[in-house]
Amino acid sequence: MNPQFDEMERSWRSLCLQMPLAFEDHPFGPDSTVYKVAGRNREDAKMFALLMVLHGELVLNLKCEPALADQQRSTYSQITPGYHMNKKHWNSIRVGLDEQTMRELVEDSYDLVVDGMPKRDKEYIRLQAVIQQG
């Protein structure tokens, strides 16, 4: 990978791993990193981000509210329908967005996934987030 990718990959990795109870997984092999969140049982973890190199470009797939997906895609040239994902619910993000926008996109993806989890898992994750913040 080139140095620009290394720096951006570290930045995106850090954003994803800052989310409460987030962790990395490699279910598709070493060439892609999946970021998941787990509630009480790590085996029931859900994916909120997928980091990969696609046709020579660093790409981060993030879940998105369907009502916002088209708006984001028309606002930012770096955001396109999610590669190899449900295009209604996922966006592919390419290098070039500012850090604050990236943070918001990662947080939104994470929150959407957590909101779809069972109530007990959501409560557990939120409690862990409060503990993590001190």
Rank of each mutant, 00 (worst) to 15 (best):
Met1Gly: 15
Met1Cys: 11
Met1Trp: 10
Asn2Thr: 11
Phe5Lys: 06
Asp6Gly: 02
Glu7Lys: 13
Met8Asn: 03
Met8Arg: 09
Glu9Lys: 13
Ser11Cys: 10
Ser11Glu: 10
Trp12Lys: 05
Arg13Thr: 10
Arg13Tyr: 04
Ser14His: 12
Cys16Glu: 04
Gln18Ile: 01
Gln18Thr: 05
Pro20Leu: 00
Leu21Lys: 08
Ala22Cys: 08
Phe23Ala: 05
Phe23His: 02
Glu24Ile: 09
Pro27Gln: 03
Pro27Lys: 03
Pro27Phe: 00
Phe28Met: 05
Pro30Arg: 12
Asp31Met: 01
Asp31Thr: 04
Ser32Cys: 07
Ser32Tyr: 07
Thr33Ser: 03
Lys36Val: 00
Val37Asp: 03
Val37Trp: 04
Ala38Glu: 07
Asp44Ala: 14
Ala45Gln: 01
Met47Arg: 07
Phe48Tyr: 05
Ala49Met: 06
Leu51Thr: 00
Leu54Tyr: 13
Gly56Tyr: 13
Leu58Ile: 12
Val59Phe: 07
Val59Ile: 08
Val59Gly: 09
Val59Met: 13
Leu60Asn: 06
Lys63Asn: 14
Glu65His: 10
Glu65Met: 10
Pro66Thr: 00
Ala67Asp: 15
Leu68Trp: 14
Ala69Ser: 13
Ala69Asp: 01
Asp70Phe: 11
Asp70Ile: 05
Gln78Arg: 10
Gln78Asn: 02
Gln78Gly: 11
Gln78Phe: 02
Thr80Pro: 07
Gly82Ser: 14
Gly82Gln: 00
Gly82His: 01
Tyr83Val: 03
His84Glu: 14
Met85Tyr: 08
Lys87Tyr: 11
Lys88Arg: 15
His89Trp: 13
Trp90Ala: 02
Ser92Gly: 07
Ile93Ala: 04
Ile93Asp: 07
Ile93Ser: 00
Ile93Glu: 09
Val95Lys: 13
Thr101Leu: 12
Val106Ala: 03
Glu107Cys: 10
Asp108Thr: 13
Asp108Pro: 01
Ser109Asp: 06
Asp111Val: 00
Leu112Val: 08
Val114Asn: 03
Val114Asp: 01
Asp115Trp: 14
Gly116Ser: 11
Met117Cys: 03
Asp121His: 01
Lys122Val: 11
Glu123Asp: 13
Ile125Asn: 03
Ile125Met: 11
Ile125Arg: 03
Arg126Tyr: 15
Arg126Trp: 11
Ala129Ile: 09
Gln133Met: 13
Gln133Asp: 15
Gly134Asn: 15
